[in-house]
Design a protein around this nucleic acid. Structure first.
Lengths: 271, 271
DNA sequence: CTAATAGTGTCTCTAAGACAGTATTCC
DNA sequence: GGAATACTGTCTTAGAGACACTATTAG
């Protein structure tokens, strides 16, 4: 319990500016990607207590001479070997008392989105890094350390909201992509089906979202017409062409759990 | 420079778990309210350096035995006398090196929304608390300490986004309110005009948003029909009935600065 | 009375969604 | 050839916005 080497309280009015409680500050990085049509998270397995036998979100101590984002990027490389994560969005700070039994620590959590994770290394104090489906990590079939389940849940909530509001969807796909790949980002993250033709009209029918390359993707082993390859346009900096349809909550005559809407293929839950 | 009493680095692989850099952790609270039809922020004026002559967002040191939210609530009361801020949303952590010249500090910023601030006290180390229009604070006519201008800007951005996605609008109004009061929340925060009749239809025309009390508000000194008073319904827990119209960015033939849309009273910029 | 604010009714138009049909590949 | 995937075109409908009109107050 190193963190209890705190400053002393001074009277009832607060703290003397030169005496204050000290904390460790860590940066955690939730790395999300889509593989096999599912949202996956990169977790590390650590040997030492109190992590033993549990999975953790990669992270480590912030240093005074670096920003939070720089610290996140450094820890990411050190622990997992993942480099060049284009965007690191900070989405929450976690400081409940006792969340780490070893010390007083506040963790600042970041979200990184990648088209794919490369070769995973075994970092300094990580006994291994692996991709795990988000659904499994959240449903408890994968045991997470400390409050990391809550952090992961918040990260997923954030990415779902950001798909509505930002161009984060394009970070899940590579430099060129097919419209099906892009559509599957929304489908995997939101857990819904989107009509391919309506999706195409929304994205291609307006300038600035996607720029056609003159190339086509090779069909998979099951055949099919080769899909056109696009690059992301500048407009993603302003938002997203696709919006999550407003869920039919609290409608009289339909339960929130199973909304019975007559016009609805989109917004339909996946099974 | 108290914070430089850091732990020592160990080799090139990271930190020894028992030796780590120590930080002060502060919680800052951006208190927003609407007064005179404008979004206003509660700022404190502090006497001592390096604050001297500058305004600051209220806040103070987190203690190890409390959560971040508890710390925010405590500091809020101590510094401004504001109590019962229903909701404290955390929206960011700030840890750039040197952002506070006195020590290594990471600040976790919170957003509080109130229908009105009561009597403002002069807290422990605050030389006074005052309401300041957000526009003035952001345009620099009010000098803010450290990186507080950026924190405030992030807070405003967050509340704007939350108006779309959450029931935060109801926190700006009292336990009962008129539809005009509610509409003015969106108008003040988004800086747009909304059509009163369409706003009414959207909010009243669907169950669960507002519950009529049988009372009416007294008109102002300029007369007018007395407005019906409502309570907030449960549905605000799921979202908002009103959505910001998608800004017409990058449309061919219209600049982002002055979109010339034929059908548009709503979404029109305020002057 | 007039000015001001609250509230109703109705029209138009856009964009989302449903879905039938065509094109091009793999096996 | 058939199955699978990509893409096009069209119809329907919900909802946003515009706006004319009525209702009720202060002065």
């Amino acid at each position: 319990m190193v963190g209890t080497k705190t400053g002393k309280r001074k009277g009832k009015k607060g703290y003397d500016p030169s005496k204050f409680p000290v904390f460790a500050v860590t940066v955690d990085v939730v790395i999300l990607t889509i593989a096999a049509g599912r949202l996956q998270v990169l977790l590390v397995r650590r040997g030492a207590e109190p992590y033993k036998g549990r999975w953790a979100i990669p992270g480590g101590f912030k240093r005074p001479e670096e920003t939070l984002q720089e610290a996140a990027r450094r820890e990411l490389v050190e622990e997992t070997g993942v480099e060049g994560a284009g965007l690191l969005t900070q989405f929450g700070a976690y400081g409940d008392p006792g969340r780490d039994p070893r010390m007083n620590v506040v963790s600042v959590a970041h979200l990184a989105v990648l088209p794919e994770v490369g070769d995973l290394i075994t970092g300094s104090d990580a006994a291994g890094a692996f991709l795990v489906p988000v659904s499994e990590a959240l449903q408890g079939s994968v045991a997470l350390a400390f409050d990391h389940a809550r952090i992961l849940a918040d990260a997923v909530e954030r990415v779902r909201a950001d798909l509505d509001l930002t161009g984060i969807a394009t970070l899940f796909v590579g430099p060129t992509f097919t419209l099906t790949e892009l559509r599957e980002v929304y489908e995997a993250a939101w857990g819904i089906r989107l009509d391919p033709s309506n999706f195409r009209r929304r994205v291609v029918g307006e300038e600035g979202w996607v720029i056609p390359t003159r190339r086509r993707a090779r069909p998979g082993s099951t055949g099919g017409k080769p899909a056109e390859l696009f690059r992301a346009g500048r407009r993603w900096q302003q938002g997203s062409p696709v919006r999550r349809s407003r869920p039919n909550v609290l409608r009289p005559g339909s339960s929130a759990r199973e909304g019975r809407r007559s016009p609805a293929t989109a917004g339909k839950r996946l099974t």
